[in-house]
């Protein structure tokens, strides 16, 4: 169970004067169960890439394989693919349309043609998984707060029981607490349900604490593809791509430059705290 992206190119508005490449020779392997951060500056092609993964966009050239099958082969069932590779778009709350939250979450599983009981069971489980309170189940989604709406929208995709969950900037426009809640929720889902998660973001800070692997996109190409520690070691190059390493990285680099004996490869706040205490203890 994995996704393989093989030499994928994508050109926007092909055959017009506005044609420009959005993806250039992308090669990726995404094995089952990984938690991946996909990072890139605005316009780096990350949103375009994830829409390829569930067949919403067809590559100009190259192939995408899901479970060893080419998804753009004629006759491949894209509807099934889309239920297995769940994609939560940016600002997913803008796609809510039903009269109450529960019905809205039912939309995905209903489209899969499941029996009514199964649909409702899945909707219930999904809403529970995202920590949605029972009392709001039958409220109009439009009366909820931004963070709650987003939970409902994520539940709408989760209810299809995807094997791969892709989230495009799930924290955009939320307050700090909302961000943390959503990120923790996603991390929990990954841990409990053992699904592959691809988290798209332009903020290193968001992903550094959670992911096993970071893919950095720059101008339509994959710039780095490595575990967080290795990627952040290239913090100078990241800056040139208008990205930044987490503040922890800068702090540790500066401390090391000032002569303290600290490990500069730490990425999380907790690790950094230990390193600093250790360094000062020795002083």
């Amino acid at each position: 169970m994995s996704i393989i992206v093989n030499h994928v190119n994508y050109i926007y508005e092909e055959d017009t004067a506005m044609a420009h490449p959005a993806l250039i020779d992308i090669n990726l392997q995404i094995p089952e169960g990984q938690f991946i951060g996909l990072i890139g500056h605005t316009g780096s092609g990350k949103s375009t890439l994830i829409q390829h993964l569930n067949g919403l966009i067809k590559p100009t050239s190259g192939e995408i394989f899901y479970n060893n099958q080419d998804i753009n082969e004629p006759g491949y069932n894209k509807k099934v693919l889309r239920s297995q590779v769940g994609l939560v778009f940016q600002y997913p709350e803008h796609q809510l349309f039903e009269t109450d939250c529960f019905k809205d979450v039912c939309f995905g599983p209903k489209n899969m043609g499941l029996p009514k009981k199964e649909v409702e069971l899945r909707a219930y489980t999904a809403l529970k998984q995202v920590g949605f309170e029972d009392e709001y189940f039958y409220q109009s989604p439009f009366d909820l707060s931004g963070g709650q709406k987003r939970r409902v929208a994520i539940a709408g995709v989760l209810a299809m029981k995807p094997e791969v969950l892709i989230l495009d900037e799930p924290t955009a426009g939320l307050d700090p607490k909302g961000r943390e809640d959503i990120l923790r929720l996603i991390s929990d889902l990954h841990a409990k349900m053992r699904i592959t998660v691809i988290l798209v973001s332009h903020s290193m800070e968001d992903v550094a604490d959670y992911v096993d692997r970071i893919i950095v996109m720059n101008k339509g190409r994959v710039a780095f593809d490595a575990p967080p520690k290795e990627v952040f070691a290239h913090y100078r190059e990241l800056e040139e791509m208008e990205l930044a390493a987490p503040q922890v990285t800068y702090c540790m680099q500066d401390l090391a430059a000032a002569g303290f004996d600290v490990d500069t490869s730490v990425t999380t706040l907790e690790e950094a705290k230990k390193e600093i205490l250790k360094a000062f203890g020795k002083c």
Binding site: Q51, L56, R82, S83, N111
Partner: peptide, 30 residues
């Protein structure tokens, strides 16, 4: 929105005229 609903299994391209019109609800409301 069309893409987002397609990601949730919505179908805008096939079915009878009445069904197609019904399928537009998840697009038109948002």
């Amino acid at each position: 929105i069309m893409k987002a609903q397609m990601a949730r299994g919505a179908d805008f391209e096939s079915g009878s005229i009445i069904n197609r019109a019904k399928n537009l609800v998840p697009l038109l409301v948002p």
